[in-house]
Design a protein around this nucleic acid. Sequence first.
DNA 1: GATGAATGAGCATTCATTCAT
DNA 2: CATGAATGAATGCTCATTCAT
Lengths: 212, 212, 212, 212
Amino acid sequence: MEYADPVEKTPKAQRAVAALLQSAREVFERRGYLDARVSDIAEGANLSSGAFYRYFTDKRHIMFNVLRQFISESNDYVRVRFTEDEPLRSIRLSTERYLEFYAQHSNMHRLLLQVGKVDEEVELLRVEATEHWHSRISRMLTRARELGLVDEAFDPDIAATLLGAMCETYAYLAYGMGRDMEKDPKVVADHITRLWESGVFSRTGGKGEVAR
Amino acid sequence: MEYADPVEKTPKAQRAVAALLQSAREVFERRGYLDARVSDIAEGANLSSGAFYRYFTDKRHIMFNVLRQFISESNDYVRVRFTEDEPLRSIRLSTERYLEFYAQHSNMHRLLLQVGKVDEEVELLRVEATEHWHSRISRMLTRARELGLVDEAFDPDIAATLLGAMCETYAYLAYGMGRDMEKDPKVVADHITRLWESGVFSRTGGKGEVAR
Amino acid sequence: MEYADPVEKTPKAQRAVAALLQSAREVFERRGYLDARVSDIAEGANLSSGAFYRYFTDKRHIMFNVLRQFISESNDYVRVRFTEDEPLRSIRLSTERYLEFYAQHSNMHRLLLQVGKVDEEVELLRVEATEHWHSRISRMLTRARELGLVDEAFDPDIAATLLGAMCETYAYLAYGMGRDMEKDPKVVADHITRLWESGVFSRTGGKGEVAR
Amino acid sequence: MEYADPVEKTPKAQRAVAALLQSAREVFERRGYLDARVSDIAEGANLSSGAFYRYFTDKRHIMFNVLRQFISESNDYVRVRFTEDEPLRSIRLSTERYLEFYAQHSNMHRLLLQVGKVDEEVELLRVEATEHWHSRISRMLTRARELGLVDEAFDPDIAATLLGAMCETYAYLAYGMGRDMEKDPKVVADHITRLWESGVFSRTGGKGEVAR
DNA sequence: GATGAATGAGCATTCATTCAT
DNA sequence: CATGAATGAATGCTCATTCAT
């Protein structure tokens, strides 16, 4: 937080800020936050390292800006309209969107995760963004419950968190870590949605009751 | 990998290794891997920093040992026997165990996650441990499917991964980040299991009861 | 030296120079010479840092101007007319004036001293100003000696220097350092003058002669 | 203050500290505090710059040590025994000692003065050392006053301060600045003492009373 | 086997000064 | 003339690792 967005008036300065942000993003993606040198960032923007400090307090400052921007983009992309009589469709769409975006920006997600593990405040930022998404899903569920579409037994908050957890970790493994897993967002979203819809266990199935 | 476990013969040397591992674990938990100083670790074991290098190649070496040991403990704790005719009961138990262990060792999990984001090889270690757990669940599911207990539509691997994802992320938020969430492993495991059993959505369209 | 006084023709330029000098003086007093930023000086004069260099060669240049001006003010204030038949009265008055001025401008004195310790040439400036004062006193003494008012044994130059030394250091401690000392210029000047007049030791007192 | 004296146990470490202090003193005398580089100090002690930080927190730390040591040496040198029935002799001796020491260590005095102007805490150290000397003289005067040797009109504290001021500033000009002045400590001490003894003005002289 | 002293690479940061606009 | 963006030299400091004792 603490860090304000740089607001520059002259066009030249605005260009410099933009170039620095772009360069920082590239350098961070390439080398990670810890190994990124301010001089590299500046150089990537065709600026001297001194110029960097005209616009940003330090490396952490520009990192915050880069990540905030990314989180914001991500939020925008994932946001979907809620269709009342088909709540699962909305959730499925949002899930798919999340996976798509992750797949396309796995490097930035990697960065976000890395920095979070090293910088408490960034982690808070990240988690709060996640929770923001959860809370939207939670609201959808609450509404759906009012419509009698959702099992009364479920706490919408927990359920939303669990959904988010599935998406996030699956995406990390599939796209971030490149594990050998189904990659198609549609297929994965489908699977998740089905799990949500009917559970894993066969409806007709005999003994699959919750064990106690 | 690369690093062999230190195998010392003399009792004195064995004690030194044990003390260093213990100290390293404490220091890592307290300060994180990056900020941990070798000298602190040595000091915590009542040894000089020079002595450290008699037993470990470098800081990374001891970190690997500490983390491998933790992962191993974790695996042991989470392993449960599979009860064929009550697969959900087994899964529920394993889930609960996982959450319990996480709650009790959230600092070590935090460490493991941190280091993973900074050291590729450690991340592999961590992910493979996770996948090991997934694969056990996957095998349970496959077996349950053969018994007709599981919906044919589900890919056991994906399902297992999704289950693991829920546990892991939920635990991270609840215990690692201390977010304001349900903390009781039993309650959470219950929720997750119920989701698995019947899905979120009401079967009858009505007020879908929780299966007992 | 080297630096010429800025002589600007247009009224605008003259105003700029005046504003810069004023601002520089304030910034120097507030932060000291070393920590003063050219940009702060310029800003204080409502000018860009680039404009600064239109009027002054560099930071040192304006510092010289500020200090020369201060020294000149000081000289003017301290100058007193010599009353032939009452030399002590003149000296006392000059002493008092010196102390008064110092008390009122202790920040500038602090600056002058600071810069002197860091810039040989400034120290010369300062010392020469001091010696200029000394030499006036010395001339007074010489004249007084010719009149038989002063003990033949005294070298006027040394005596003048010693007088100046007393004033300067006392003022530094009392006004510059804020030590817990008599602050009233009149009282201090009185003391000093009395010392000059009759020495510390009791005239009638027994064995207080100069030890050899 | 804040800084503790480095107390090292092993002889090697003690030698390193001594070498660093010696080197620091030389570098400081040669280049002044501000322009001295830690690396130069280390190099002068045949050590790497890293080694420096094993013993000292930073440049300021070693500077404090160097200056404290110097002040202490100076105090020791100047301290003289007080001869009750010849107070002036004691004062004269102390004066002479002060001048001698200053002449021999004018570079260190220059350093002390320079640093004081830039570091508040050092200035306090310096001033307090000075005042310590003053207070000793003050005590001598008080005692002498009790013996009826000193004019009742004099405040011993002010008088002591004035004496110190004369010595200090004279020494600075003569030895520190190399001005063209009498350099022989005996002669100067003589002059000062005479001033103290009988004042500048001729006893028999006509109108030289203190002007009011 | 220990000790702990020594090494030295590596990077962030500041700000006086210059110069394109 | 003024602006304010860009330059870039210069150095303090850390700590993993090595090595003399």
